[in-house]
Simulated assay, not measured.
Amino acid sequence: MNPSSMFTALSIFTTFASIIPVYHFIYRFLHIAPCLQGEGPGLLIYPRRPAKEEQGYQAEAAALARRGSMYFRRGQPQRAIELYSRALAMAGDEAVLYLRRGEACYQAGQYQQALSDCEQALRLQPALAEAHYLRGRICTRLAAYQQALSSYTRALELDAGLATLIYPERAALYQRLKDPHAALHDYCRALEYSPHEASLIFQRALVYLQLREPRQAIVDLNSVLQARPNFACAYHYRALASLYLQDLAGARQDCQRATTLNPMHIDHGWLACWVTLCEERPNERLAERLQALARTAPEQYVALLCQAASAWIRGEQAEAQAAISRAQTAAGADEHWGAPFWQAVIWVTSGHEAEAHQALREALIRGLPLPLLSPLRWANPGFYGHYARALLEA
């Protein structure tokens, strides 16, 4: 090829090399412009997944979810959370996947994230009963008790098959909210499904005690003790039920059994000492026993009552008053009858009978079983005869 021909060919090639990208750009622009305006064929920049590819993603998401469920059942919630999150990234918004991740977060103690996932599940599927149930459990953990109640109730409306789970949990929630009648209803319903479940029977017995139905409580506690004969708490509460029936001998026997089974349980020991004071004069041995109980949990309500009673037995009235004053400000003190009764004992010992009488009235209003008035006779026989004997003999 001569130089002139080579020059001509090079010029043509250079011209086409410079023009082709421009034409290519113009072509591409004209082709995608309708798409940018919402017209024309499907997305070209980000094409839709082919159907087979979409099915592949869904299958992989389902496999990840199954693995997540496996780790969840094994008690490895963090690993389950990771797998459910990956499944959600592939499958997009799916109510059941949010629910499952919420369950794993709940198991991991991540309650706020669990609640968020529950809300997402319910946004996508408002009638998903399991999500309402899980939301009830989460709200209970977060102390949002009214929201928990509404969630449990809604779950039960949507799926009666959740009754075996919801009735026991809602009953416990009613107990926490101090609604014993509603709690009793739910425990009775729960026992229709699980009539031999000792833990449910025991909780119902406590509700019967709260409602001052000691005979029903004893029936339930007897049933519990048939199934669990070494259950110290059942003996303790049966002793309390016997006291409401003014059966001091039965109460003493059950107190002995409870303390034998669990000698350092402060509640069992305290009730046993109080019952002993109903029949025996105070003595140093009893004061030492009370002090030993108090040392197991020094600032608890019952421990402070033990300290007060021990100091009173030893004639240390200032120490007794200091302990009972702390007891009256402890958590739960405004509902229990122990502090006002022992305040009455301390005051009547010091000759403040009017104040003692007022404290005694408060103890009785809160539900003090009448036989537990008996230690007053060691403090002031005249006061005891005037205010307490008539009640015990009625």
Rank of each mutant, 00 (worst) to 15 (best):
M90E: 00
H336F: 13
I81S: 06
E393L: 12
R212D: 13
L36M: 12
R204E: 05
Q78F: 09
P229N: 05
G161D: 10
L245K: 09
A183D: 00
N222R: 05
Q343K: 11
Q107C: 04
Y106Q: 11
D117H: 06
L128D: 07
I81L: 03
F13E: 04
S325V: 11
S199V: 01
T15N: 08
E103L: 10
Y244F: 14
F202A: 06
N380S: 12
A287Q: 08
E157V: 12
Y193H: 13
A183N: 06
R212I: 13
G38L: 07
L36D: 05
A217N: 07
G367F: 04
Q210P: 01
A363N: 03
L184G: 08
F16T: 09
A51T: 12
T164G: 15
P195H: 03
C306K: 11
A227P: 01
A309G: 02
A394F: 15
A91R: 04
V302E: 03
E157N: 13
P263A: 01
P298T: 00
E94S: 05
L392Y: 10
Y235Q: 06
L373D: 00
Q110W: 06
L134K: 10
A62S: 14
Y301T: 03
F25P: 07
A323G: 08
L64Q: 13
Q147L: 13
V96M: 08
P369Q: 06
P263G: 02
R228V: 01
C188Y: 08
P41W: 06
H185R: 14
Q317V: 07
R123V: 05
S194A: 12
H268M: 04
L156M: 12
A63N: 12
H268E: 01
T14G: 09
E280I: 04
E279W: 07
D186M: 02
L372G: 03
M6E: 15
C278R: 05
G269I: 07
A394R: 15
I346M: 02
I346V: 13
G161F: 01
E169C: 06
H386S: 09
T259P: 07
L184N: 01
Q226A: 10
C139T: 10
G332F: 00
A331S: 13
Q246M: 11
I26E: 09
L177C: 11
P47M: 09
I32G: 04
T259K: 02
A363H: 04
T8H: 14
D247L: 02
I313H: 00
T14H: 04
R295Y: 11
M264V: 15
E197C: 14
R74G: 07
A251Q: 00
S223A: 14
A17L: 13
A91T: 07
P168D: 08
